[in-house]
Simulated scan of single mutants.
Amino acid sequence: MIKDRAFGRQDSTAAAREANKMFRKVEAAPSEHAKVDKAFQANRERLKAERLARESKHPTNKAR
């Protein structure tokens, strides 16, 4: 490997770069629980938006 004297770094060779690709951290696939939770949250937000739209069309005097 060639040292970069100005910065004290070493240039990696093509073989070293290729080997490093094998050891990269991969993001784990979401678990079944995470998928279900994400779908639940999305549905909850959709229903909330629908409720707010409905309430804005027909306001009531509900005290919260």
Results as ranks from 00 to 15, higher is better:
M1S: 13
M1D: 04
I2A: 15
I2F: 10
K3C: 08
D4I: 08
D4H: 13
R5H: 12
R5Q: 15
R5F: 12
A6S: 11
F7N: 15
F7V: 12
G8T: 00
G8I: 03
Q10T: 14
S12A: 13
T13H: 02
T13F: 04
A15M: 06
A15T: 08
A15Y: 04
A15Q: 10
A16N: 00
A16D: 13
R17T: 01
E18W: 07
E18F: 08
A19V: 00
A19T: 00
A19F: 05
N20A: 15
N20V: 04
K21L: 07
K21P: 05
M22E: 15
R24T: 02
R24L: 11
K25I: 04
V26G: 07
E27Y: 07
A28Y: 02
A28G: 03
A28P: 02
A29N: 07
P30Q: 05
P30H: 01
S31Y: 00
S31G: 04
S31V: 03
E32I: 05
E32N: 06
H33I: 10
A34Q: 14
A34T: 04
K35Q: 11
K35G: 01
K35Y: 07
K35R: 14
D37C: 09
K38C: 07
K38D: 03
A39P: 06
A39L: 13
F40H: 10
F40G: 00
Q41D: 15
Q41A: 14
Q41K: 15
A42T: 03
A42N: 06
N43L: 15
N43S: 15
N43K: 15
R44M: 13
R44V: 08
R44S: 09
L47A: 05
L47I: 05
L47R: 11
K48L: 13
K48M: 10
E50W: 08
L52P: 04
R54P: 03
R54M: 05
E55H: 06
E55L: 09
S56E: 06
S56H: 02
K57M: 00
K57D: 03
H58Y: 12
H58I: 05
H58F: 11
H58P: 01
H58Q: 10
P59I: 03
P59T: 02
P59V: 01
T60N: 09
K62T: 06
K62Q: 14
A63F: 12
A63P: 03
A63H: 10
R64E: 12
R64V: 07
R64D: 09
